[in-house]
Amino acid sequence: MNRYELIDISGDAGVRAFGKDLGDLFLNAAAGMYSLITDPESVTPRKSLEIKAAGESPEGLLVSWLNELIFHFDAYGFIGKEIRIHELHDTLLRATVTGEDFDSERHGGGLLIKAATYHKLKIERREDHWEADVIFDI
């Protein structure tokens, strides 16, 4: 099973993430999003960030989690590589993200993501895995 694949949508960009459980799904959605910004291979884990996110449903939590990561990228230039999820309920997530400061020379810019959106947002439990679709505002 792939961790994620990209969804084609006119004007914007999306990620379909897969996971064996909800935690794995959230982690892979974040990895998919980072892959839109730059080549994940070019990112080195140098410093860590504690992230907390809250939402009123698993879907809302997923958007809020990804928007938290977008905030840290857009405001401080932090791009993540390794993610450890410490706590995950339907409405709360706590994680450590390890990565580094974005450097356009080394990282080569892909897309500048403005936000994770609720557009066509879904989380689905399949027989043996979970799937999530998130569309990003570009």
């Binding site: 009123e56 879907e59 809302g60 809020s64 928007n67 905030f71 857009d74 403005k114 936000a115 959106t117 609720y118 557009h119 066509k120 947002l121 505002d137």
Partner: peptide
Amino acid sequence: HQVCTDFLEVMERAASKYRIELYDR
């Protein structure tokens, strides 16, 4: 974009508070 992100959360709660049925969240 951050203003939009912040207020989407507010508006999501508001839509249910004012009983507005949404085609897309």
